[in-house]
């Protein structure tokens, strides 16, 4: 591996000033992307500045939503009960990323800042309306995650800036979200296509949701949609690997948002999502297949979101 110096600052300020003073420096968190890139000679920084030992990057705050520090590792995030309960899409992604060994060092900040189109936590954060909190010379600023991804490997922050945390709003209880990663094998894999969705129903439908559950159970969901006029107050759909960046399929969202969820609106949303996708042929998957999978995964994540919303109300 090419030589580099390695620095371990204890505070954000120290990290920033190191970055400013060093030539050809780069931040490193868990290192599972950065070190692989260096080994594969895709990049060759002279200095790595570790963010692993900065305590303020490991905060968890649980009021008015959830704030999670960027340098929390995936395995720690999995232990946060609120993520499992209220932000299921993120939980799904955390379980699916890499392997246990990777999840034991890889951080959510690293996953987001690496900005691979297949980044597992990206789609969940998109549908969960996350805000990215960024620290830099001019202080701290917030960027909606949707504006944060710019292209493969590029994000809306200065190189010297540090993502410190992600803020997730709190959602009404009648909300469900889900993430599905489509892979060729069941572990240690990158997504061929990935999709996340969030559905928030209207408050007045709560009793209907309960009825739904008591009458039929969630397994019969797709067939029963027509009997239960569920009004979608807010819909989010995000897709991975089928564009230069993880993105929200907003036309698909608008097929559902402010509408009743039924077979037809669901199908429209899936068709629209497939239209919005711009998949490519790569060795990891063929474009036509990826587009097909966008439809399937969109449907499945929405149904899973609905199921979870219903279960939340039970």
């Amino acid at each position: 591996m090419k030589k580099f110096d390695y620095h371990i600052p204890k505070s954000l300020e120290e990290a920033l000033s190191l970055f400013k003073s060093l030539e050809n420096a780069k931040y490193i968190a868990g290192g599972t992307d950065v070190l692989v890139n260096i080994k594969r000679k895709k990049e060759s920084p002279s200095h790595l500045i570790s963010l692993r030992n900065i305590d303020s990057l490991k905060v968890v705050e649980k009021k008015d939503g959830l704030k999670i520090g960027s340098c929390l590792i995936h395995q720690e995030l999995l232990k946060i009960e609120e993520i499992r309960t209220y932000y299921s899409a993120l939980y799904d992604a955390l379980t699916k990323l890499g392997s246990k060994q990777i999840r034991n060092v890889a951080t959510i900040g690293g996953n987001i800042c690496n900005a691979a189109p297949s980044a597992d936590t990206a789609c969940p954060l998109l549908v969960l309306d996350a805000q990215v909190v960024i620290f830099g010379e001019k202080g701290t600023r917030m960027v909606p995650i949707d504006d944060f991804f710019e292209g493969p490997g590029t994000v809306a922050k200065e190189e010297s800036e540090i993502v410190t945390s992600f803020e997730l709003p709190s959602f009404p209880k009648y909300t469900g979200s889900a993430y599905i990663k489509h892979t060729r094998r069941e572990a240690m894999d990158l997504a061929m296509v990935s999709a996340a969705s969030r559905i928030t129903f209207a408050a007045e439908d709560q009793s209907l949701l309960r009825d739904f559950l008591s009458s039929k159970g969630v397994e019969e969901l797709d067939k029963e949609l027509k009997n239960y006029p569920l009004f979608v107050k807010e819909a989010r759909i995000a897709l991975g690997v089928v564009a230069p960046r993880p993105f929200r399929a907003k036309k698909a969202e608008s097929c559902l948002e402010g509408k009743f969820l039924n077979e037809e609106t669901l199908r429209e949303a899936c068709e629209k999502a497939a239209e919005e996708a711009q998949p490519r042929d790569t060795i990891r998957g063929e474009a036509w297949y990826r587009r097909e999978m966008v439809k399937v995964l969109t449907k499945r994540t929405i149904l899973l979101s609905v199921k979870r919303a219903i279960e939340m109300c039970s």
Partner: peptide, 10 residues
């Protein structure tokens, strides 16, 4: 106490 890949551990 955590299993890690030593090949990617600085």
């Amino acid at each position: 106490k955590r299993a890690v890949n030593a090949c990617l551990y600085p």
